[in-house]
Amino acid sequence: MLPKSSNDVHLKRDREVLEEIPEKKLLSLNGLKVLVVDDNEDCLCVVAFVLEDYQAQIKTAVSADEAIEAIEEWKPDILISDIAMPGKDGYSLIRSVRKKEILEGGFLPAVALTSYAYEDELDHAMDAGFQKLIRKPFEADELITVLIKLTQDT
């Protein structure tokens, strides 16, 4: 029998390492149109990166006014919005969306994404018109699961 080369040893070790990595869950957004609103460019990039990894179509906005314009023009399937933004905050944004829906019909599921840690923040978000609140930092699979559930329910 021939001695194993160092290359064989490395390949075996690499294979063992790969086998230890858990399989990625089979979650996909299948082209879902997601509008992400946040005044923080870094947060926008992270959320967009995660959503693109799950096959979503992404549009971003850095203000409530920009988001309203994107909703009218692009017609997203779901909205993810930060709460704390200068000027019009996420609450103002979702209230504007809900008022327009009362007048024109339709429904846009919405998720509040926030770094706030106040206990009553969930109540404030729901009262304003969001369906779900997710705290930053978030787990990608949690966000994706919420988006799938909210868009399947509508």
Rank of each mutant, 00 (worst) to 15 (best):
P3T: 02
P3L: 07
K4T: 10
N7E: 11
N7I: 14
D8L: 15
L11I: 12
L11V: 14
R15L: 13
E16Q: 13
E20F: 15
P22Q: 03
K25M: 10
K25W: 04
L27E: 10
S28E: 11
N30V: 09
N30A: 14
K33Y: 08
K33S: 05
D38V: 12
E41W: 11
I58D: 00
S63P: 01
A64T: 10
I68Y: 09
K75D: 08
I78K: 02
D82T: 03
D82R: 03
I83F: 03
M85E: 01
D89E: 01
S92C: 10
I94Q: 02
R95Q: 15
S96A: 12
E104F: 15
E104D: 12
G106H: 09
L108T: 02
L108D: 02
A110R: 08
V111F: 10
Y116D: 02
Y116M: 09
Y116G: 00
A117P: 03
Y118K: 07
Y118E: 11
D120I: 03
A125K: 06
A125Q: 04
A125W: 03
M126R: 13
D127G: 07
A128P: 02
A128T: 03
Q131H: 12
L133S: 03
L133E: 01
P137S: 00
P137V: 00
L143R: 06
I144Y: 11
T145M: 07
L147Y: 05
I148D: 00
T151D: 01
Q152D: 11
T154V: 14
